[in-house]
Write a protein that binds this DNA or RNA. Structure first.
Length: 443
RNA sequence: CGGGGCGUAGCUCAGCCCGGUAGAGCAUCAGCUUUGGGAGCUGAGGGUCGUUGGUUCGAAUCCAGCCGCCCCGACCA
């Protein structure tokens, strides 16, 4: 993509409304623009990141056996009356009336709708288990939206819903999501820590929040150091097998958010704990028959008996992750995208656009990279070098290739790794050979 | 929902206290000079001063209502 043709409005100055790093950087790097309080438009660069995160979430959900569907954003109030939540949900639910005076709502979540679908279509124990998910925009009318997309009112969320015959099967469904989440966040370049969460009136231990570690995170967390050494991507996972041992490896260490951490009651001595900060990006929850009983989701069992389904729901804040990743990975100059979610793998800076030698080499390199399918953003603008470098640092592409009059004479290209700042000088062929490997690595 | 703050050019802001008909820097456009970390000079375009009403000969400025946005708290993927 040529920068001269790309819609990428970057800002040199910080918009006044942005308080935290990710919000500032998302505005400055031209990822989003605010439409109204807590509601954002996604510009091309931000949209690319969102899609890449979505793709990883989707791939890991599919791998675990969940099936993707797509439910609407607008739901009927009648459905929510059946679960009793229409009145319980309060002001956070955005209520809408259509032209026929029917009461509708913009869905804050989808338990009612999915349970209704399953109740209508699944009748036999032979049809279980099932895990259905979708990635869809939700709306919760937060009193005070803040932190950009981290706490917006409209947000993109992956939510999965599992349906099983009994608790034992439901626990397996839960474990599958637990492991899928570990893998998902690891692939996103994040250190995610599952922490036991409150289960409310249902009780039990089947609810975990996934907190990713970021120095600027909103909540304080306490955890055992050993958790940091666990590597989810090294796991050989067979989702058909009992995943209990895998889950146990992550849950045997202590980890709690500030609200739940009581130093006096902690099972682990204080000197074994480290305190850091984090951001909640996922939540998994087993809730039994809470919705299935009210919505009539039941199947006929082997003996002809009627069995109410055991359910769980599993959320990942997809749009929030864009902000969360930035919180976990940035410096004073800008964003530092993990390769797995970067909007482009390579930025190409032509230091002296208009110079015949520089232009020729840059075009040759740009063409070569495109032919091999590498995603490259070529800054061909007639700007000063400083501005181009500053913009590249700001938008945070993993690699920046620089062509300037100094090296172009001898065909030398400088390669910089954004994360470390390490620079290497290479010839055109060497760069293309390197990029080939890069392409293979991220395919 | 309690408490506080702010709405002036695309962005960051000054002007408001003390009313006299709107400014700076950056950005944009044109030209020249520049070119390895957000250059310089010259010129140009761009604002019903959030909105409605009131006070006044006269309102960005004073008063009131409304709308929007932000911050702290409570709440939350």
């Amino acid at each position: 993509m040529r920068r001269t043709a790309y819609f990428l409005p970057t800002l040199k100055e910080t918009p006044a409304e942005a308080q935290i790093a990710s919000h500032r950087l998302m505005l400055r790097a031209g990822l989003v623009r605010q439409a109204s309080a807590g509601i954002y438009s996604w510009l091309p660069l931000g949209n690319r990141v969102l899609k890449r995160i979505e793709a990883i979430v989707r791939a890991e959900q599919d791998k675990s056996g969940a099936q993707e569907i797509l439910m609407p954003t607008i739901q009927s109030a009648e459905l929510w009356r059946r679960s009793g939540r229409y009145d319980d949900y309060g002001q956070e639910m955005l209520r809408i009336t259509d032209r026929h005076e029917r009461e509708m709502l913009y869905g804050p979540t989808n338990e009612e709708l999915i349970t209704d679908i399953v109740a209508a279509e699944i009748h036999s124990y032979k049809d279980l288990p099932k895990n259905l998910y979708h990635i869809q925009w939700k709306f919760r009318d937060e009193v005070r939206p803040r932190f950009g997309v981290m706490r917006g009112r409209e947000f993109l969320m992956k939510d999965a819903y599992s349906f099983d015959l009994d608790f034992r099967a439901a626990r397996h469904a839960y474990n599958k999501m637990f492991v899928a989440y570990l893998r998902t966040f690891a692939r996103l370049g994040l250190k995610a820590i599952p922490m036991q969460a409150a289960t409310g009136p249902i009780g039990g231990d089947l609810s975990h929040e996934f907190i990713i570690l970021a120095d600027t995170g909103e909540s304080h967390v306490h955890l055992e150091r050993e958790l940091l050494d666990l590597d989810a991507l090294a796991l050989e996972v067979d989702y058909a097998q009992d995943l209990g041992p895998v889950v146990e490896r992550w849950t045997r260490y202590y980890a709690a958010t500030d609200e739940k951490h009581a130093p006096a009651k902690s099972p682990v001595p204080a000197d074994k704990l480290i305190e850091t900060r984090g951001i909640e990006v996922g939540h998994i929850f087993y809730f039994g028959t809470k919705y299935s009983a009210k919505m009539g989701a039941a199947v006929t069992g082997p003996g002809g008996e009627r069995i109410t389904l055991e359910m769980g729901s599993y959320g990942i804040g997809v749009s929030r992750l864009v902000g969360a990743i930035i919180e976990a990975s940035h410096d004073d100059a800008g964003i530092i995208w993990p390769e797995s979610v970067a909007p482009f793998q390579i930025g190409l800076v032509n230091v002296k656009s208009g110079d015949a030698v520089c232009d020729a080499l840059a075009e040759q390199l740009y063409g070569g990279l495109r032919r091999m399918g590498v995603e490259v953003l070529y800054d061909d603008r007639d700007e000063r070098a400083g501005g181009k470098f500053a913009d590249m640092d700001l938008i945070g592409l993993p690699w920046v290739l620089t062509i300037g009059p100094r090296g172009a004479k001898t065909g030398t290209i400088e390669r910089k790794y954004r994360r470390s700042g390490e620079r290497t000088e290479l010839g055109l062929d060497a760069v293309l050979a390197w990029a080939q490997g890069l392409n293979g690595a991220c395919a």
